[in-house]
């Protein structure tokens, strides 16, 4: 199964992420976002704990990705991988361990300005999960 796939968009970046579980689709969405910015493999040198909340799966995804951008700008941390990602589906709460490195050591070709709700969905289709996200760049 493919982890994610980029789709055509004139001005911005659009992708779909896939996973056998909702946890996996969140993880793959985060990795897709970072891979829109750099082609390099980010080392897993630093660990950070993350907790976010939402009102539904879409807003949880939005807040999750936004937090990753926020940490990048404010704590000099770029995501390389995720461990122990857990989603409380009833309360739309997410917990995860982020692994990554300082962005200064890598080459970025694009800066993501914001996550958008543009054409966004997170849903289960035939027992697989799929998410679609457009990033404003």
């Amino acid at each position: 199964m493919k982890k994610f796939e980029f789709l055509e968009h004139t001005a911005d970046v659009k992708f779909q992420a896939f996973g056998k579980s909702i946890e996996k689709v969140f993880e793959n969405s985060a990795i897709a976002m970072i891979s829109a910015m750099t082609n390099q493999k980010i080392k897993k040198k630093i660990k950070k704990d993350l907790k976010v909340k939402g009102k539904d799966f879409e807003s949880l995804m939005y807040n999750f990705l936004e937090e990753i951008l926020f940490i990048m700008d404010t704590e000099a941390f770029v995501l390389g991988g995720i461990r122990k990602l857990k989603i409380d589906k009833k309360n739309f709460e997410l917990k995860a361990e982020l692994l990554g490195d300082s962005p200064k050591k890598y080459e970025f070709h694009l800066d993501v300005k914001a996550i958008t709700y543009n054409e966004m969905f997170v849903r289960e289709e035939k027992k697989n999960w799929i998410a679609q996200i457009v990033l404003d760049v």
């Binding site: 990048m72 200064k104 890598y106």
Partner: peptide, 12 residues
């Protein structure tokens, strides 16, 4: 100019 003006992602 490249040295003086921070540019790119993650360069504060």
């Amino acid at each position: 100019l490249y040295k003086k003006i921070p540019s790119g992602v993650g360069h504060g």
